[in-house]
């Protein structure tokens, strides 16, 4: 599903660039990327997601070159094949929970299937929040809705950036379980990027990022 080769990134004005290990994920695989701050883990996630263009190296998504596409093509491909959970949950504030999920489906090119959205929210224990305003959700609920949004269009790859950094142990477990269950249900590959050492014991596959030079 995802393959990276020789990814390097150098920020404008920085003396040295960041070099990243090659990643290879098949459908159904899960991988934890561990790294302290400054190791460029968010940069790597953004390179994988095509939100940044690598200085060197390439990203292949679903067997097709991804990092070589232009901005608009990358946006559309990302929307179709990836679901991203960000560290802080953000939504289109003028829309309800259900509409935010419908928007994710429509931007990915899927029909806005009300049953899929309702069923997914029920799975996540948010069935009653379908028509709620996103501002009215608690932080925990927001994180669960953003997981729902990342999987509602059945992407092949789920990316999560520090999904648990703001949560206590109980919630960390709950969120991680949700992510893994949803990935498993849709057969998607799961890539989690974090500095949260608690996750190390909970996911079998992990790669540690070291400060590189």
């Amino acid at each position: 599903m995802l393959k990276t080769e020789g990814l390097r990134y150098q920020y404008a004005g920085a003396d040295t660039g960041l070099t990243f290990p090659d990643l290879h994920l098949n459908k159904g695989d899960e991988l934890l990327l561990l790294g302290a701050s400054g190791t460029g883990k968010t940069t790597l996630l953004h390179l994988v997601a095509g939100m940044r263009t690598p200085t060197a190296g390439s990203v292949t998504l679903a067997g097709a070159p991804f990092s070589a596409l232009n901005t608009a093509q990358r946006d559309q491909t990302r929307g179709k094949h990836m679901g991203i959970v960000f560290q802080t949950a953000h939504f289109v504030r003028s829309l309800t929970v259900g509409e935010n999920l419908a928007l994710a489906r429509s931007l990915a090119g899927c029909a806005p299937d009300a049953e899929v959205i309702k069923g997914l929210l029920q799975d996540l224990g948010l069935g009653h929040k379908l028509n709620a305003r996103v501002d009215a959700l608690s932080v925990g609920e927001q994180q669960r809705v953003s997981i729902a949004r990342a999987v509602v269009h059945g992407p092949g790859l789920i990316l999560a950036d520090e999904p648990t950094s703001a949560l206590d142990d109980a919630n960390t477990d709950a969120v991680l379980t949700l992510l893994r269950n949803q990935a498993k249900r849709t057969g998607a590959a799961l890539l989690v990027v974090t500095h949260d050492q608690r996750l190390k014991d909970r996911m079998s596959q992990h790669v540690e990022l070291n400060p590189t030079s």
Binding site: A49, M51, T71, A72, Q73, D75, Q76, R78, G79, K80, I84, F86, H90, F91, V92, R93, L103, A104, L107, A108, G109, R149
Partner: peptide
């Protein structure tokens, strides 16, 4: 106020146009 929201739309598959 909404730059995060707009960036989010991009990650969800909305091209700049």
């Amino acid at each position: 106020d909404r730059r995060y929201e707009l960036a989010l739309l991009r990650t969800m598959g909305a091209p700049p146009r």
